[in-house]
Amino acid sequence: MADKTSSNAYWAANIRVITISLVIWFVCSFGLGIILRPALKGIMVGGADLGFWMAQNGSIYVFLVLIFAYAAKMNKLDKEHGVDE
């Protein structure tokens, strides 16, 4: 196993990435798709209002981007901290 300080820094960096990702995850699905929908009725995505589109299609695209972005970022962090396989 890598030395203690290095793996602590790695874990702190990981937690930071997870926190940012989960904020985006929450805002796009629960935020735009549910809570804020009534307030955002004026913004249209094609024939749908933004909240409706996020709830039926948009949030799924955001989830996809989030997972791959997280995987790429973590691969980089793994290498930087010398904990990759």
Binding site: W25, S29, G33, S59, L66
Partner: peptide
């Protein structure tokens, strides 16, 4: 259903 059954994969991948 659409958000719930897909958004869970973000939690799986990250957590």
């Amino acid at each position: 259903y659409l958000m719930g059954w897909t958004g869970g994969y973000v939690l799986l991948a990250l957590l």
